[in-house]
Design a protein around this nucleic acid. Structure first.
Lengths: 207, 207
DNA sequence: ACTATTTTGTCACCAAATGTCACAAAGTCC
DNA sequence: GGACTTTGTGACATTTGGTGACAAAATAGT
């Protein structure tokens, strides 16, 4: 039962609920209904309840779901309760934006190190992390148990960094450049492509 | 027939193919097989062929698809062939990263204006666009026919900008902050949530 | 010219996911 | 106590996606 893998769809939706819950909590709410979650995720309320009730009875009838409790439950279901270390590559505008934004921190990801090759950037503090030289990649990945590499480097450098990450055993790469990356099949690459998502939104607006 | 809306899934996949095609073109390729597209999108090659063959016979047997031709066809199918104006809010690190990256330009989106409220940023050039004061929002939206607003502002300011955009008729908002936005039901909000996508990737890695 | 190989375009079929309606049970509010 | 809200859950239709199969078209090699 609990060792079954979730389906892609359920895991994706649970992650999205988690984001809504995290934000709702920041806004001071303590409980939330499936209806309310639906408004922010565009997932049907019945589906939400069904997704959740498959794992336990987390809600209170007539009230909704306790936000803190549900966040904890979903984290447990997704098995991502702990802290996970990520390494960020590129300390340019994008890298700095990511490092200072807190989006990752909210979900239990700790930016373990920021790398760059530009001597003017190495040694500079971004948020409260000092930018290190790319040469230190190997030791940091090994020492800190980095699980995820986040690429905020120019497209031309992305493949090289990806190769190095793969060589040092990192299996998840989050790619903010628009380069297509070639990696072994056991490595997951997620490419952020805002323009693609915009195209998608635009289509449904135009028709 | 051609006036039928595409289903969500097909539209999403076509957009993704488009990104792969755009990048493959940049890498100097002129044709590509469904197999190759599959490797970058994780969509089954048969499905890709079926998606495309529903609209015409775009490929050459034994060869694959002509990249330029297929890009044009998909743009036509998605009805997003033209130029679309977008307005960017926030000229901080993230805003500058977006403005200078070219991700939007590659897909026919033109950044029509960049807004900020900080007097130190207004008037500064980012890429080849001069940052304007937020007060000019109304006239720019009207004059340039802005269809999309991209929010690269702090979470605390996101709802206010969204409200103003809605008030001036913009129907698509791309939100890079982590704020939950309340908008009328005819407005589409797309929130970028890298951490959520990471959680999702991590789950499948851990199991 | 002939053969082997690649790759599209399509069939048919199955499994899985999603949307929808319905409704009892549990809780809150007045 | 009665009205209302909201969860948990069942049943069912529909859609979607995955898979295997295979002919037809194109290329490359001999």
């Amino acid at each position: 039962m609990s060792s079954d893998r979730l389906t892609l769809g359920v895991a994706a939706r649970l992650s999205r609920y988690l984001q809504v819950l995290t934000q709702a909590k920041k806004m001071g709410k303590t409980s939330i209904s499936s209806q309310a979650i639906s408004e922010y995720t565009n997932v049907n309320p019945t589906q939400i309840r069904r997704d959740l009730s498959g794992f336990g009875k987390f809600g209170k009838r007539g009230v909704g779901y306790d936000i803190d409790g549900l966040i904890a439950q979903i984290r447990k279901i997704l098995r991502t309760s702990g802290q996970h270390n990520i390494a960020l590559f590129g300390a340019g505008n994008l890298g700095q934006a990511i490092a200072t934004s807190g989006v990752f921190a909210d979900h239990g990801f700790r930016i373990s190190a920021i790398f760059d090759v530009d001597p003017d950037r190495v040694g500079v503090k971004v948020g409260d992390i000092t930018v290190r030289h790319y040469d230190e990649l190997e030791s940091v990945v090994a020492d800190d148990g980095v699980m995820v590499g986040v690429l905020a480097v120019p497209s031309s450098a992305a493949q090289e960094v990806a190769d190095d990450l793969v060589a040092h055993g990192v299996k998840i790469i989050f790619n903010y450049s628009d380069a297509l990356l070639s990696v072994p099949s056991d490595v997951t690459v997620h490419t952020s492509s805002p323009a693609v998502e915009l195209l998608h939104a635009l289509y449904f607006y135009l028709t």
